[in-house]
Design a protein around this nucleic acid. Structure first.
Lengths: 125, 125
DNA sequence: AAAGTATGTCGCAAACATACGTCATACTTA
DNA sequence: TAAGTATGACGTATGTTTGCGACATACTTT
């Protein structure tokens, strides 16, 4: 107990990243591969929910595309329904919108930060 | 020459990812680690351009934080000015805003896509 | 000049991501 | 029921990222 406290206090700095920081990083990670961007764009553009034809649109093997789809799915950004032989994927609009809003808010906050002129630390607190 | 053509044509699908897809993925990758999110938030929040004090705010060693700073810098999202002993980092507002806008547009486009009900491929083109 | 401080760079180990061939599953159609 | 097709899961090779200690650099202060 004391030991635990001590261990924590020894670390002057933050002990872990915040919930939101981890959420944002996770969202960003999902988007951090061109194949997954391409898949999302394709799903957004197409009128119908294309299944494995997606692999036709992307310069990767079917296996690899399937993996990327799994990743997008387990992140909750898309959903897939089995319909007989084929699987119909589409954007999970609700979840995607939520995650996108969080990301957009973060970007907005950082972008609208005060424009620094890189002066040396003014008040060495 | 013919061989090259043949090699290209053999690939029915796209040969490479688009410029924009790669740009977006790159931006996302930079944001795909909680430490880098935390650093950006910290820089945005702080009135003055903190240098190595950043390491105090983050649950990682100074070395590792320095690396993350380098990554943000080489992605152009932040800039750092040496001022004697310390280095003053801050958001590169122009570049960050540009990248953020690109990302926000992409998210918006996907989020505002048509809401699919996952019917089986209607017209098997 | 010597000691001190803020930083960055190097090199390594461990963890993770990517790509893809092959195999397993489950449905369709003949 | 057998052949065919669309998929996902498994295994594995190869590459990339992360984290950090130890060292190098460059400036400041005494």
């Amino acid at each position: 107990m004391f030991a635990t406290y001590f261990a924590i206090m020894t670390y002057t700095k933050a002990t872990a990243f915040g919930e939101e920081q981890q959420e944002l990083a996770k969202m960003a990670k999902v988007l951090s591969h061109p194949a997954r961007i391409a898949i999302l764009q394709h799903l957004a553009r197409t009128q119908r929910c294309i299944s494995g034809d997606i692999a036709q649109e992307i310069p990767l093997s079917r296996t690899t595309v399937s993996q990327h789809l799994q990743e997008l799915k387990s992140a909750g950004l898309i959903k897939g329904e089995i319909d007989g032989l084929t699987v119909c994927y589409c954007i999970d609009k609700e979840q995607f919108t939520k995650a996108a809003a969080m990301m957009a808010t973060f970007l907005q906050q950082v972008a609208s930060s005060y424009d620094c002129d890189c002066q040396p630390n003014p008040i060495p607190a």
